[in-house]
Computed example of a mutant assay.
Amino acid sequence: MTSELLNHRVEGPASAPPLLLGPSLGTSYALWDKVAPELAAAHRVVRWDLPGHGGSPAGLIGPGASVGDLAGPVLALADSLGIERFAYAGVSLGGAVGLHLAVHHPDRLSSLAVICSSAHFNGAKPWEERAALVRREGPAGLAESADARWFTPGFTVPRLVQDHREADPDAYAACCDALAAFDLRDRLAEIAVPTLAVAGRQDPATPPAHLREIADAVPGAALVEIPGASHLAPAEQPEAVLTALRTHFGGPVRRGMEVRREVLGDAHVDRAQARQTPFTARFQDFISRYAWGEIWTDPTLSRRERSMVTLTALVAHGHYDELGMHVRAARRNGLTPEEIGAVLLQTAVYCGVPAANSAFAVAQRVLEEEAAG
């Protein structure tokens, strides 16, 4: 064994909530290429390679390995990065690592997503046979059938197939040993972190029934089935996987929507949501995640102070339609009419009298409507 770390890639702000992404057997962290950069907008994303895959040292595991032997280096990686608790998502064997962590190291996980994976992998014999084959002949032969095992007909990701072909035979076989011994079905009810199970509807390796078994056994777990996806859903249907993970891990999006409603009111947010179209959906997500989920939740300034800054900025740029909305928000955030007037008077000095004149007209109308209603 070696004290080396798993090969990994870190993306996203260092101050963002950490999210670790685990790969499937035979792949590298390239499995997450179409998902990780988007998740990194709101998370500190750490994706890692299995031992002997991608750039990870093969000697991190040996013959007779268990999934626990794979989870250990993941925790060591997190420790090396100063990460105590983290969200986790993993595909297939990477998902099994997540289940192991949730059962055996619940203090380290904040939430879990298990993708195209299982609490058991159809018994030991097929994996024992595969391990023996790879130790004898290497993984290149198996790579020839990877597309059929991983993707729906006609789809492929050459980089991932190449990863399979180049995997270290002994480390790959040791991963097979881990899958052969893995069975957490009798421990699923112990998992206490928020859990999402994601199934590829066309997945022959871990069909939806396996993910449903997890969702049914883990208290409060949710299940999402993705059409048009086989075993490597993040590569084949990245948008669907991204949507599911964003919803589950929420963080800035969920908190942002809460704050948006608290500041602007349910009626305004409901109208905005009702007007949302596929064309505007990503912009609405951006607003909830960035403006409301990251900026307005920053405790450095109070909401009263943020309202004063916002009113000033809107007057400076002549955004009077938005100004009316934020006058209401300022009242909701505790500003009195007199304080709002003082802010607008300040803008007369620094933004100009005509701008302040228009702003006073908007604010007076809103305040009169509030007083009457």
Rank of each mutant, 00 (worst) to 15 (best):
M1A: 13
T2E: 08
V10P: 00
A16G: 10
P18G: 00
P23Y: 03
A36D: 11
P37H: 12
A40P: 02
R44N: 03
R47E: 09
W48T: 13
W48R: 10
G54D: 06
P57S: 13
G62V: 08
S66F: 06
G72L: 13
P73C: 13
V74D: 00
S80N: 07
S80K: 00
R85H: 05
F86R: 01
G90F: 13
G90A: 06
V91A: 11
S92Q: 02
L93K: 00
L93S: 03
G94R: 01
G98H: 03
A132F: 07
A132I: 09
L133W: 10
L133C: 08
A140S: 15
R149M: 12
W150F: 09
P153V: 08
T156I: 01
P158R: 05
D163G: 07
D163S: 11
R165G: 02
R165N: 01
D177N: 11
F182H: 14
R187T: 08
R187F: 04
R187Y: 02
V193E: 05
R201Y: 12
Q202K: 03
P204V: 12
A205M: 14
H210V: 11
L211K: 01
A217P: 05
V218G: 02
P219R: 01
L223D: 02
A229M: 09
A229N: 15
L232V: 15
A235V: 04
A235M: 05
E236S: 06
Q237H: 05
Q237L: 03
V241D: 04
V263E: 00
D266L: 12
H268G: 09
V269T: 11
D270W: 13
D270N: 15
A272K: 07
T277R: 03
F286T: 12
A291Y: 05
R303Y: 08
S307T: 08
M308Y: 00
T310E: 07
T310F: 07
A316F: 09
T336W: 04
T347A: 06
V349E: 02
V353Q: 15
N357P: 15
A359I: 13
E369H: 04
E370R: 12
